[in-house]
Computed example of a mutant assay.
Amino acid sequence: MTDKTLRSSVIKIYKELLFLGREYPQGYTYYRDRLHRAFWSQREIQDEEKIKQGIKRAEFVKKEIEAL
């Protein structure tokens, strides 16, 4: 994958997770802040494999939130 496709994948999953947070039990603001911190803490990762692993982890979290 190129840098642009990885970047767009990360942005896409971030937006999907953010959208799912509308109905989060503890409130949207709490959810949004936690999501932002989680993504922000990983901003320095340059390794393509680690980025792909992060995207897979985010997809898993997305499925878990949908199950709520």
Rank of each mutant, 00 (worst) to 15 (best):
M1P: 03
T2G: 05
T2L: 04
D3S: 01
K4C: 02
T5Y: 08
L6I: 07
R7G: 09
S8F: 07
S8W: 04
S8N: 06
I11V: 05
I11P: 08
I11L: 10
K12G: 10
Y14N: 07
Y14F: 07
K15N: 02
K15I: 09
E16R: 14
E16C: 04
L18H: 10
L18F: 13
F19P: 05
F19A: 01
L20G: 10
G21M: 09
R22A: 10
Y24V: 00
Y24K: 05
Q26T: 09
G27V: 10
Y28W: 10
Y28F: 12
T29P: 00
Y30T: 15
Y31E: 15
Y31W: 12
Y31T: 09
R32S: 15
D33Q: 15
R34H: 09
L35Y: 02
L35P: 12
R37Q: 09
R37P: 10
A38Q: 15
F39N: 14
F39I: 04
F39E: 05
S41G: 14
S41C: 05
R43M: 07
Q46M: 09
D47F: 06
D47M: 04
D47I: 07
E48R: 02
E49W: 05
E49F: 06
K50M: 14
I51G: 08
I51W: 00
K52L: 13
K52T: 02
Q53L: 13
K56P: 04
R57Q: 06
E59I: 03
E59P: 12
F60R: 06
F60I: 04
V61Q: 12
V61N: 08
K62H: 07
K62T: 09
K62R: 13
K62P: 02
K63S: 15
K63W: 09
K63E: 14
E64Q: 09
E64K: 15
I65G: 04
E66A: 04
E66F: 03
L68F: 08
